[in-house]
Design a binder for these strands. Sequence first.
DNA 1: AACCAGGCGCATA
DNA 2: TATGCGCATGGT
Length: 279
Amino acid sequence: MKYEVKENDIILSDVRCLDIELCVFCGQAFRWKKNEDGSFHGIVDGKVTDIIQNGNEIIFKNTSEEDFEELWKNYFDIASDYENYCRILSADENIKKACEEYYGIRILRQKPWEALCSFIISQNNNIPRIMGIIDRLCETFGEKIGENDYAFPTYESLKNVTTEDLAPLRAGFRNKYIVDAVQKLCSGEIDLEKIKTMPIEEARLELMKIKGVGAKVAECTLLYGFGINEAFPVDVWVKKIMAEMYPAGLPECCKDIEGIAQQYLFHWRRNSDLFKNKE
DNA sequence: AACCAGGCGCATA
DNA sequence: TATGCGCATGGT
């Protein structure tokens, strides 16, 4: 992968299978905004950028080579060969369609705590409202890092918050789950660094010690937060796909990359319903 | 006005 | 182990 540094911008031109809009708006991250000019405004790990995409040319605005190397490159999983993943997954006709229709989706490699907290909030909730709650979480408790930009609050910074303190988020019954997660992380009872090194089965159980973290949220944390491609979150949409197309389980071609297959299928299935309802 | 949203905890059998 | 219900909030 090559890129050009121009003043405060990083310009990529040879990355395949990377559609920024699809990546940031396919329900895996909740903090991106589309600007008036069509660029995408993102805050990740306390750093801000705006991304402009014209076909193969992708410009990361107002960032440095150092931040690109240490943060954005990893976040968009640029070193991984998604063309190859698509090729493998295309052994199945349905997944092939999903990959073709949504070519350019990648799994965003997020921070474990942000993924964990975001998907605790996501339960029995819809994507627009999840985004609103996370906005308010960041505005209320995150560090101000720009005119209208706030970092995702660290769990350390939430150490003593109560469910009452979280009321402004309007997250309802999820407040107590956030508090429990913060307490278990702050006390060291659960250690995200250790989870990173555990076998997946053990990591699942460890995450599920947190109240409000069941199989689905644990799986999302493993996939998006810990970059484990075989983690396979099953939400209402994936559940529909499994019932409709794969009653006996995922096809063989998904082995070890179940989570990646899941992302194409989730977006494909969900959009087909959203589109249908607009007719 | 019911029903649903990237589920989970808890009670019951 | 398996099923069913309630849960905060807001949109359709």
